[in-house]
Structures are given as structure tokens and as C-alpha cells.
Design a protein around this nucleic acid. Structure first.
Length: 290
DNA sequence: AGGGGGACCTGTGCGC
DNA sequence: TGCGCACAGGTCCCCC
């Protein structure tokens, strides 16, 4: 379930399990996920220390003592679980609504301190790569990414400039990771609704105050979702060290046919509609989004 | 260059 | 109960 906020929540869960620990063994249980694992994947991980776990857009980036970075993308259905002997009062595992089918455990990392990090991904849309950290500016998955929503670079004027001349719908443009990094189908719908911008509006017509509002909505939606993931995390962090996975109530996503929450009182006379753009569902209020 | 459509996978929920 | 279909939070790649 990973858009930027979910990936950030996962990152925060992986930090205590991985940072500072040497990888004692690594195993891929199959040759590929979405793409083939890089050459000598397990050997390049074994024996090196994880110095830091970063995130860029929806990518998790484990910085290794070897000078390489392990890049991990969760695709649509990727998830990590952690088992640990000695991380008391620390996240010991992620909590999911349904248990993982072990048949889809594709990568297993054993780290110091009895920590085992397992990557499970039924659909295998996720992928992993290893690259020299020094070449990150030209790394194929990272080099073309737009600004993070919470960065100074991401602003109304930036967004207007980035969307200028684009003839397709703004919904599609916001999913383009080169324009802004980390948004997915849910948060694009939510941000457009908050800004009262129609998902069908031509991207190139977003300018001025409208661009400002949209950039602000993107920022706010992402920030709140991260905070909600964090609060869930605290709520679920019990003595066994469980880490809650992000849960959220959406204003439009998945709410086709329900009354809009567009008015101050919470009830809009219109109902949320669903339409399909580029083969993906868009949820919006036909009355309030223009 | 930008935009549209298909491809990659498995799982789930629904209508018949 | 079984079957087929639609749909699912992402990205890449090919074509125009």
C-alpha cells in the first residue's frame, strides 16, 4: 500500500532494525521480482554494514558500508516484516491486516543482534537494485525524480512552471514522478479534492492561486498522512514492539456514491463519483472540484 | 516531448 | 460452491 507516506512509515520501522547492523547473510529466493536482482546480489550485501536507511520518493535506500546503496521499491504489494531477539521496546514487526503468505517471501536479510528482515511481495511489482552511492545523481530510478512534496523546491510557482504546456489532465500529471515525487493514486485524488481542482482539468491551466492551493494541498495531505502513520506507529508500539501500519480515512478515495465532505458542515449535496483516467480510478466531487 | 495503452503479477470480492 | 470478471496503493516500455 505504498505511496510516499507509507514508504516513509516503513522506513521508520526499518531504521532500528537495520541501521548500524552488519548484514550477516542475505538471500533471494528467486532470480527476480519485477526485474532481475542485480548481479551477485547476496554476496554484495553479505558482510557489509547498513549505515543509514533513507527514502527518496517511494524508494527506500539502505546506505551500505561497502559504498553501495541498496534500493528497494515496494511496488503495489511489497511489505517488510522484522523479527528480532534484542530490540526490546523497539519495532519488532509491522502489523498488517492479513498475515503474509510465506510463499511470497522473496528476500531475507539476517542482521546482527538476531534481526531478520523479510521482504514479501505477492504481485512482485516491487524491485531492488544495488548501485554505487557516489553515482546516485545519475542512477536510473532516481535521477529524473521531481522534488519531494515537503521540500523548499516544491511550491506553487514551481508546480505552475512544471505543468505549463501540458495538455493532459492534471490528475495524470501529478502521478508523474518527474513533476513531484512520491504521489500515488490515493493522495493525488485527495490533494485535488482539497484544492477543489477537477482531476480532468488540463494540467497546463494550473497557475497562480490555483497552483498555490494545489501545491499546498499536496504538501498538507502528505504531511498529515505521515503524521497519521507515525501516530498509528505509537499506538501500536506495545511491549512486544509491534509497529502499526498506516491506516487512514480518505475524503474521496474509495468513496464513490457517498456524500462529499466538501462543505464546512461536512455534507455536500453532491455524491462522490469515480471515473477512469489512464486506466486508473479517480474519485472526485463533481460539484466542488473545478 | 508528451500522452495513451499495454505489460508485468497475484489476490480478493462480487455477480451469476 | 464454482467461475469469470473487475479491480487493486506502481512503473516501465513501446508506439504515435
Amino acid at each position: 500500500m505504498p505511496e510516499l507516506p507509507e514508504v516513509e512509515t516503513v522506513r521508520r520501522g526499518l531504521v532500528p532494525a537495520m541501521e548500524g547492523r552488519r548484514i550477516l547473510s542475505a538471500r533471494a529466493n528467486r532470480p527476480d521480482l519485477r526485474f532481475a536482482f542485480p548481479d551477485r546480489f547476496a554476496e554484495r550485501l553479505t558482510g557489509t554494514r547498513v549505515e543509514r536507511v533513507d527514502r527518496r520518493a517511494k524508494y527506500l535506500l539502505a546506505r551500505l558500508g561497502s559504498g553501495e546503496t541498496l534500493l528497494m521499491h515496494l511496488g503495489m504489494s511489497g511489505r517488510f516484516s522484522i523479527t528480532a531477539e534484542d530490540i526490546s521496546r523497539q519495532p519488532g514487526d509491522f502489523v498488517y491486516a492479513a498475515p503474509a503468505n510465506p510463499a511470497h517471501n522473496h528476500v531475507v536479510l539476517e542482521l546482527e543482534g538476531g534481526v531478520v528482515v523479510t521482504y514479501n511481495d505477492p504481485r512482485r511489482f516491487g524491485f531492488m537494485d544495488l548501485f554505487e552511492t557516489a553515482v546516485e545523481p545519475t542512477q536510473k530510478y532516481l535521477s529524473l525524480l521531481g522534488p519531494e512534496p515537503d521540500s523548499n523546491q516544491f511550491s506553487g510557482p514551481y508546480l505552475a512552471e512544471a505543468l505549463k504546456g501540458r495538455r493532459g489532465p492534471v490528475k495524470t500529471a501529478l502521478l508523474d514522478q518527474r513533476i513531484v515525487a512520491g504521489l500515488g493514486n490515493i493522495y493525488v485524488c485527495e490533494a485535488l479534492w482539497r484544492a477543489r481542482v477537477s482531476p480532468r482539468r488540463k494540467a497546463g491551466t494550473i497557475a497562480g492561486a490555483r497552483a498555490e492551493a494545489l501545491a499546498g494541498s499536496v504538501r498538507a495531505v502528505i504531511a498529515e498522512a505521515i503524521a497519521a502513520g507515525g501516530s498509528t506507529l505509537r499506538d501500536y508500539a506495545g511491549p512486544d514492539g509491534a509497529l502499526g501500519y498506516f491506516q487512514h480515512r480518505f475524503d474521496v478515495y474509495g468513496r464513490e456514491g457517498e456524500p462529499g465532505r466538501c462543505e464546512a458542515e461536512g455534507t455536500c449535496p453532491a455524491r462522490i463519483e469515480r471515473l477512469v483516467q489512464q486506466g486508473r480510478s479517480t474519485f472526485f466531487c463533481p460539484r466542488c472540484q473545478r
